[in-house]
Design a binder for these strands. Structure first.
Lengths: 152, 152
DNA sequence: CCGATGAGTTGCGAATTGAAACCATTGTGC
DNA sequence: GCACAATGGTTTCAATTCGCAACTCATCGG
């Protein structure tokens, strides 16, 4: 036993119908998405995650365990040396749009007008355009023009 | 004074350069985004938020206070009666892409193959298409084809 | 005026965090 | 081959935060 009884999200209890709630059950805490962000940005080792995020080591160990358990991260032998390293799985990499929209919201609303911040750019160094949700026919969508359809 | 000393996110300290971190400082806890989700889905009153999310009342009071303080929600007099109600500000509504990508990730990865879940549809009842980040020239982008450019 | 709601607040025990110290393995320079 | 540093965690313990239930104040509906 002795899994250290340390849990992040309570895990499995919020409105089980809603995909948003399900996702937040997995990554809806202060750190998980920052870990994923750093993994996308090249972090692989425990120490590297710790250094980049500044998260407490015990919490980091717990989050890495959890993200791995839920299939967002995987551990594999590092190419060089025989230490283990953490890499994003397909599901983990698929959080890219989530991180991107969080980033873009932050750029729009969490910085003072002239304040500088890092930017996301593509291979050519060109800034990534802002994401705009559209319907099948191409019109812009927002909270007012959409609604949740309960499964029946 | 006595602001009840109840805080959600520690507020203001993670890598202040990164927009993702800034955003998560505001809404990166277990509940804030669910409150926003419900606000987008029509919730306006304390009780309604409480009923939909199942969140503890003291925590809800704290989150509403915080979201309001940070300008994601605003309180205004309800059209009927003279009770107050909470409504999303422009910044709050602008979290739509975040909620949407969380939802779409959940639909792809947090449900067993045949399992049912609610769906987001537009005015015509047509399901909202999946968001795909693209670069300026239209190619698909992901974690491998983009990188953060540090501000210098 | 009376009971029912709505909107929070308060008190508390339980669970989660964070900081720092500690430890067992590799790695490494010499 | 060895002393020494770095890695990857674990343990401990105090400080926060959470969740629950009970309680308070309006206001509402008759």
């Amino acid at each position: 036993m002795s899994r250290t009884t340390m849990g992040a999200p309570n895990l499995g209890w919020t409105d089980p119908e809603c995909p948003v709630a399900r996702t937040l059950d997995l990554v809806g805490d202060r750190w998980s998405l920052l870990v994923v962000r750093d993994a996308m940005d090249g972090a692989r080792s425990f120490t590297e995650f710790q250094r980049r995020t500044g998260i407490a080591r015990n919490i980091l160990a717990d989050r890495l365990r959890k993200l791995t358990a839920h299939g967002l991260l995987a551990q594999r032998a590092a190419p060089t040396g025989r230490r283990q390293e953490y890499v994003l799985t397909d599901a983990g990499r698929d959080l890219f749009p989530v991180i991107l929209t969080l980033r873009q919201w932050g750029e729009r609303h969490a910085f003072a007008p002239g304040e500088t911040h890092s930017t996301l750019v593509d291979q050519h160094g060109i800034p990534v355009p802002e994401i705009a949700p559209t319907s099948a026919d191409g019109t812009l969508l927002d909270a007012d023009t959409t609604h949740v359809q309960k499964t029946r």
